[in-house]
Design a protein around this nucleic acid. Structure first.
Lengths: 210, 210
DNA sequence: GTCTATACTACGATAGAC
DNA sequence: GTCTATCGTAGTATAGAC
């Protein structure tokens, strides 16, 4: 019963998200998005002024979804190790549940054509929420280092490693499937990914009292 | 004195590599490549039959460059820890010296339009060389695990982490620059990246005798 | 809010002169 | 080996009827 009668706008955002994730900003046409949403091309331009604006609204939704799941973790009052474990779990689950997220985020790093329109309010919103999310992760790591729980690593480099280990992993598609010998998004592969990352960072980041 | 009179073909491959790395397969037009190489569009089609063929020749060159640098490392007869360190150093240096490599490789995971042409001989060559390179890395890790030098990790997951930690890192562009507070490709950032990765994997992967 | 029709530009690719 | 000219298609975006 409610399938809550998705508005045209939300329907468009959904199909655009899937298409942009698969083929990128340049690879998708407004016509294709419109017909996939069951509309004419001109109706699409009624809902979104331009292609870059639509793209950044799609990207903004994705970043916000991620932000909303990670924010409680970094704001929680547990120890640094528990927080890191929880961060990994939540991040991996989020990327696994929404398979478009990882690719859309990685693509966003590259798409210079969209970056050419980064004065758009939708683009600025994206950057702000992303920056806030990254700051939270950095804070989590910085607190662990300051408390002597983590080694005195470079926080920035560790964030990069963490992104690579999660976002890249779930964006790696057929290459990842081939390496693992099973689908990246299968339940076993997802829980194994968490386990491997927990182990890597427990051994690699946490200071063991001799 | 030689500037060795770059052939038209090589000149085209160079400019196409730069453009594909920046804007992807769909984002670059044959016309743009031609004029950037100092040719007319039709002359470009004389050297390369189609856009996908040109793309895969560019990608193949990049993958082979990487393969040629990594092959001696995985074939060498040193210990697993030394090999891993050397692998990290060579990989990081290669990605830092050729800034197009990381983006081109990551993009190649996504570009489905090019993947639609994966029956091309140039595409098959790419896949073979890449597979060979990845097998070498897997062998390196497997040997370390079997020798009891490395923890009994999933080799496939560790390869994924290694790729993320290097290829993603050097493809991360402005985001990475912002996190590090300096250019990703600066000498300090590059040598710091090696150091951080050495430390992470020494602590996180190598078995310490108690 | 959705449609048809249209304007204009760029795309990949080909033909044929030089 | 490079050029001009051209084909057919598809791109973003707009105007205006319903």
């Amino acid at each position: 019963m409610a399938l809550p009668t998705l508005s045209s706008r939300d329907k468009i955002l959904d199909v655009a998200e899937a298409l942009f994730a698969r083929r990128g900003f340049e690879g998708v046409g407004m016509r294709e998005i419109a017909t996939a949403a069951g509309l004419g091309k001109s109706s699409l331009f009624h809902h979104f002024r331009s292609k870059p604006q639509l793209y950044y609204e799609v990207l903004g939704r994705v970043i916000e979804r991620l932000h909303d799941r990670l924010a409680p973790v970094v704001a929680s009052h547990s120890g640094s190790i528990e927080k890191l474990d929880r961060l990994i779990d939540v991040l991996v689950d989020a990327l696994a549940e929404q398979p478009t997220t990882a690719r859309l985020l990685l693509r966003a790093l590259f798409e210079e054509d969209a970056t050419a329109h980064d004065q758009l309010p939708e683009a600025i919103k994206c950057e702000q929420v992303l920056a806030d999310t990254l700051e939270g992760i950095q804070r989590l790591l910085r607190e662990g280092v300051d408390a002597g729980v983590f080694r005195s690593v470079s926080v920035a480099h560790t964030v990069q490693t963490l992104i690579g280990a999660t976002v890249y992993h779930f964006a790696s598609g057929e290459l990842g499937d081939g390496l693992l010998g099973r689908p990246l998004l299968s339940a076993e592969a997802v829980s194994r990914r968490k386990e491997e990352l927990h182990n890597l960072f427990h051994h690699g980041l946490v200071v063991r009292p001799a």
